[in-house]
């Protein structure tokens, strides 16, 4: 009877030992595996940051440089017909996928016509050929957050004349007032307009050159949606004045970085406040 009891105890102990050994072995394997996985994620994050930062720099140098100072957001662009931006975005993608230390795939959806999204104001700024659109999303919350626009044009042509075809001016104290400043510097002087327009009305300013051709059209649609159409190369500095500070990012999940370790989908942060 005593022998059976001892044998049973030994058996129990052996089972316990085996269980402990197996647990330790599994734990050890996990510990070894975790840094390897983290190292792989590090590599993927590095590639993502490379792509995001590279695109941000191409955007700032070749399309629009965005800076935020308090409530003022400044967009500076040299608007040309050159497709240099698209070429460089394509080459950069080709370069990072070809020269990466890992098997990398990058999808840059929507980069050709970049759109910048302002948070938390729900406003999108879209750049397409011959057109820039500052569009508060269609709700009262976003449009009310834009207090005004200041547009400064520089062109290498004779200074055109300003011609307002639609204009509804209001007092600065009007709750629907939208501050507008438009200035243009041409080869023979400057022209400008400063005033307060009704943000809920349709306003249109055409700039007509000496040969009676319209070269720039600034339109303000309800509500506080500003569009610039142009058909010449020029420098443009646009300043949006908001009622609070903002952050800017590309509006689409345009970066899809895929490596053998996993995928990371995200936006290009243009300016973080």
């Amino acid at each position: 009877m005593k022998g059976v009891l001892i044998t049973f105890c030994v058996l129990l102990l052996a089972v316990a030992m085996l269980y402990m050994t197996a647990t330790i072995a599994m734990y050890s394997s996990q510990i070894k595996g975790t840094p390897t996985e983290m190292s792989a994620f590090e590599r993927m994050n590095m590639e993502y940051d490379t792509v995001s930062y590279g695109i941000n720099r191409i955007l700032a140098n070749e399309k629009v440089n965005i800076t935020i100072h308090g409530r003022n957001i400044t967009f500076e662009s040299n608007l040309t017909n050159s497709n240099r931006y698209n070429i460089d975005i394509g080459r950069f993608r080709q370069f990072v996928t070809g020269f990466s230390s890992t098997n990398l795939s990058v999808n840059l959806t929507g980069m050709e016509q970049p759109a910048v999204f302002l948070k938390p104001h729900n406003t999108v700024i879209e750049y397409s050929t011959g057109k820039i659109n500052f569009e508060p999303e269609n709700n009262s919350l976003s449009s009310g957050k834009i207090e005004g626009y200041s547009l400064l044009f520089k062109i290498n042509q004779q200074t055109p004349a300003f011609n307002w075809t639609n204009k509804t001016e209001v007092l600065p104290s009007d709750p629907n007032s939208l501050y507008i400043h438009v200035g243009l510097q041409g080869t023979n002087g400057t022209v400008y307009y400063t005033g307060y327009l009704n943000r809920d009305s349709y306003n249109k300013l055409s700039m007509v050159n000496a040969t009676n051709h319209t070269i720039v059209v600034v339109t303000i649609y309800p509500t506080a949606n500003l569009t610039i159409n142009y058909n010449l190369d020029m420098y443009l500095k646009s300043i949006m004045r908001l009622n609070s500070s903002a952050s800017a990012e590309m509006s689409e999940n345009s970066i899809n970085t895929s490596t053998i370790y996993g995928k990371k989908l995200g936006k290009v942060v243009v300016f973080e406040n």
Partner: peptide
């Protein structure tokens, strides 16, 4: 080891990868 790709600019255009 680690690795990073970058770009350099001249006159607002990419000059080197």
């Amino acid at each position: 080891e680690s690795h990073r790709e970058f770009i350099t600019f001249s006159n607002s255009s990419v000059i080197y990868y």
